[in-house]
Structures are given as structure tokens and as C-alpha cells.
Design a binder for these strands. Structure first.
Lengths: 236, 236
DNA sequence: CTCCAAAATTGATCTGGGTCAACCGCCTTT
DNA sequence: AAAGGCGGTTGACCCAGATCAATTTTGGAG
């Protein structure tokens, strides 16, 4: 939880960017990309740092380059609901009220491409394809949000955990390729707050899945021993 | 549940439209509106009819003109999660997969302005302001979706019901002006499926609120006797 | 290495909300 | 007006998951 923010000169080029293909910028051509390069600034955050907070006035948008973030909302009494986990390529900060509507913390070391709101807004202004891309991302997120509502409102603890493991794996697969080893950089508390459960229930469910030979709990993650069984449990 | 769909000639003009100011079309100028008029077709649905279903290929977008709709997703075993209620001015059907990702039923009689997907897409094509408007609506919905995740994952039954009553009233206020009489056109089952509860719990919670003199249950809705108390219960 | 703190697991117990079931108005339909 | 049905309410009981309470494991810091 060291409050250290490192800003390095933007020596790295968008064209070399790891998330070039999947991020907002995928809609830009070579010429636009060169102009776009000057808008973004690479910023590092260390584990546990807050990138932005709910209700903060939005001054920047963020494109996650490396690492994982938890996106969450808090109730006045401290109860927390994680509304999503961000992975490289995700675009954060869009809103209409001028304020963020959730908070975002780094889970482990994180690198983002930060855009000041005003110049970014100007850049979009007359670029239909970029706006279309952002719209596409918003709609994709809206779908995920609705799926998550079903999970939160209508699924049992077992189903929630199973669905989470599959969903998380799926995202990692499309990012780094298939593997039955699923790293879980977030804490049990994070998982609980994402699934609307308690830390104890998450832990117990993991243990139960392991006892049934469906997963193996390994350091920093789990191994999917029987993906088919997990899918059956998730009752997709 | 009569499967009667009435399509009337589009004699009514956009400029007279009740939702002109709040809907997608609010971003159009007079000239554009005249062209836009030919794209939409007024369609009526009677109570309980399905306007579109999850997984249906999207052929149309809809602008709700009159009435209320429930938007929901079903699990294979029949469990239902209502992801939202649509009111006049709401725009439905945007997606990227080419398929709807939730179903939509009429609650009571409904009138929609239906747009065929292809011509509507063509119309948007080079109209930045319209795309911006749609983006704005998508982001607004995303915020609502996240708020609802907090409700589903982290609030008690009492809080859920209280928050629902306030939220629903708020939407009606901004549509038809302030009133402490809150019509509830949807069934108890709908409310339960929206809040991730059972019909019994919703009914009991209503009764409890009434016993405590906080609301009065009236035919087709409730009356907010003590809005402040309800807000306290919702623990916003 | 040892020590400490935080994270995770496990067990025992409790309870909010679910389940099951009866019943009560109402609107319709005949 | 009787009958049937559907939506809603109410009561009795139950259970999934929360809560409370110890451990145990892990990961740094010195």
C-alpha cells in the first residue's frame, strides 16, 4: 500500500503497445495513432493503490496496459460490492455526470495509459470510428453487467463460484491463450465482494470443489481439473 | 396475454411525440427529424406480450413511447432476473453480438417506436451527435446497472424494497412530476425478480412497512407516507 | 533464520430469507 | 350469484449462507 506513483516519459510507442489490438485505440489508423500518442501518459501504480475514487471529479480516462484492477462501490457503512475486475485492454472512466461512479484499485502492480479528459474529448470529437469503438465497449460492459445481475440475484453460492472461475478463465484465455491453470491475483475478500458472498463461503466452496476433485487450489490461483464439471455446477 | 400486435400507419409526427425531449431523438434537429420520421413505425403491444426475446437476432431497435416493460434474463431452469424496467423515452435493443441479450415484455399496454436495424444504422452512420446521444444513454444505463449490482449483492431485503420504491418513484417523478402516490404496474413477482427476492418476502416487507406507518398499500401501487423514513431504510 | 501481521481455512452456531402450504380477496366468465 | 382462477397475503418451518471464533498458512521485515 505504498503511495508511490511513477510517471515515466512516454518513450514507448502506441504502435508497440501490448493492448494495441484490443483497446480503444484499435480503431485508429497509423496517422491518428501518432497524434494519439501525445495524449496518453504511462503511469504506474503499485499494489493496493487507488487509481480513482467514486465521486471524484473525472479528470482523466484510463486504458489499462498491464496488471489487474478491482472496480467497486461502497455503501456508507462500508459494505463493498466489486462491480468488475479490469484487465489489460479495458478502458475506464467514461461517465456523463462528470464524476466517476465507482472506485478503482490496483491489484498488484499496474500500468495504465492515462488521458487527460479535455484533450481526449477533443480528439474524439470528430472521429466517428473512435466514438463507435467506445460505444461498442460500453455495450459490451452493459451485457456483462446484466449477466452479473443474474449471478448476484439468482444463483447459489456454488454456482456463483463456479461461474466466476469459468468467466475469469475465459477472459484470461482471450488475453494470454488457453490454460487450465487459472491465476487468481485478487484476494478471497475481493472474490466474495464480487460474488455477493462472505470470505468464509468463498473459502469453503473452493475447499469443497477441491475435495470433489474438480479443482486444485494452488499458490496464487487454482487449477481446473474437471472443467466440464465446473460448467455443470455453474448451470449456464 | 392476447397475441395481438397492431401496426397503425405512422400518421403521428415525431415533433408531436411525447418522449421527444428525453429519447434518443432529442439530439436531432428539425430537418433530421423529418427524415427520421420515416424510419420509425408505431407498434402496440398488449399486456404480457413479448416485444423481443433474449438470443433473438436483432432486427429492430425500439423507443418506448407509452407504458412499462420488464427487461429480464432467464436461467435454463426458469429462474428469472429482471435487469430493469423500461419507461417512456427508454431506448432498447442496442447490442454488438447481433442478438438481444435480454427479453422484453409489455406490462400493461405498450406503444413503441420501432426502427428496422439496417436503415437505423445507416441513419446514424454519419451523425456524430446521435451516436453521442446513444453512447450517453448506454453509459447512463451502465451506471444504473452497477448501482443495481450493489443492491443485489450487498443489501438486505428491507433495504432492497425501500431502495426500489424510492428509485421507481424518482423515475416517475422525472417523467410525470412529483407525487407521493407511487403506481406499481408490475406484479409482486416482477418486483421479487428485480430485487433478487421471493414474492413472499416482498409481500411481507410491504406489509411490514405499512404496519410501521411508512407506506400505505393502495390498489395498483403504494403511497409514501414517510419518504424520509424510507430513505433511511434504503441506507443510501 | 525468527517474528509478526495479514490472509486463508475450518468449525460451531445463528438467522434472514426461502420453502411449503393455507387462505383471502378480487376480477372474470358463465 | 356461483364458480373458478389468479395475484397477493400470511403462517409455520427450514436451510443456505452469514456470523462468530479459533487456528493455520503465507509473506515480508529484520
Amino acid at each position: 500500500m505504498k503511495p508511490v506513483v511513477t510517471i515515466e516519459p512516454n518513450w514507448q510507442l502506441c504502435s508497440d503497445c501490448a493492448v494495441r489490438a484490443s483497446a480503444v485505440c484499435s480503431s485508429l489508423d497509423a496517422v491518428e495513432l501518432r497524434e494519439f500518442e501525445h495524449l496518453g501518459r504511462r503511469v504506474h501504480f503499485s499494489s493496493g493503490e487507488t487509481v480513482f475514487s467514486e465521486e471524484d471529479v473525472t479528470t482523466s480516462f484510463y486504458n489499462l496496459l498491464e496488471g489487474v484492477m478491482r472496480l467497486y462501490k461502497l455503501l456508507p457503512d462500508g459494505r463493498r460490492q466489486i462491480v468488475g475486475f479490469a484487465l489489460p485492454g479495458d478502458f475506464l472512466g467514461m461517465n456523463i455526470s462528470g464524476r466517476h461512479n465507482f472506485s478503482a484499485d490496483a491489484i498488484g502492480a499496474v500500468t495504465v495509459c492515462q488521458f487527460a479528459k479535455v484533450p481526449f474529448g477533443r480528439f474524439i470529437e470528430d472521429r466517428l470510428h473512435l466514438l463507435r469503438r467506445i460505444n461498442e465497449l460500453a455495450i459490451r460492459e452493459l451485457n456483462q453487467a446484466r449477466d452479473h445481475m443474474v449471478l448476484l440475484g439468482r444463483r447459489s453460492a456454488d454456482e456463483k463460484v463456479a461461474a466466476f472461475l469459468l468467466g475469469w478463465r475465459e477472459r484470461l484465455v482471450s488475453l494470454k491463450g488457453a490454460s487450465d491453470t487459472v491465476p487468481l491475483p485478487m484476494s478471497r475478500q475481493d472474490i466474495a465482494d464480487y460474488l455477493g458472498l462472505t470470505i468464509e463461503t468463498v473459502s469453503r466452496t473452493f475447499t469443497k470443489l477441491e475435495r470433489h476433485g474438480v479443482i486444485e487450489i494452488i499458490h496464487g490461483g487454482i487449477s481446473l481439473l474437471d472443467p466440464a464439471k465446473v460448467e455443470a455446477l455453474a448451470a449456464a
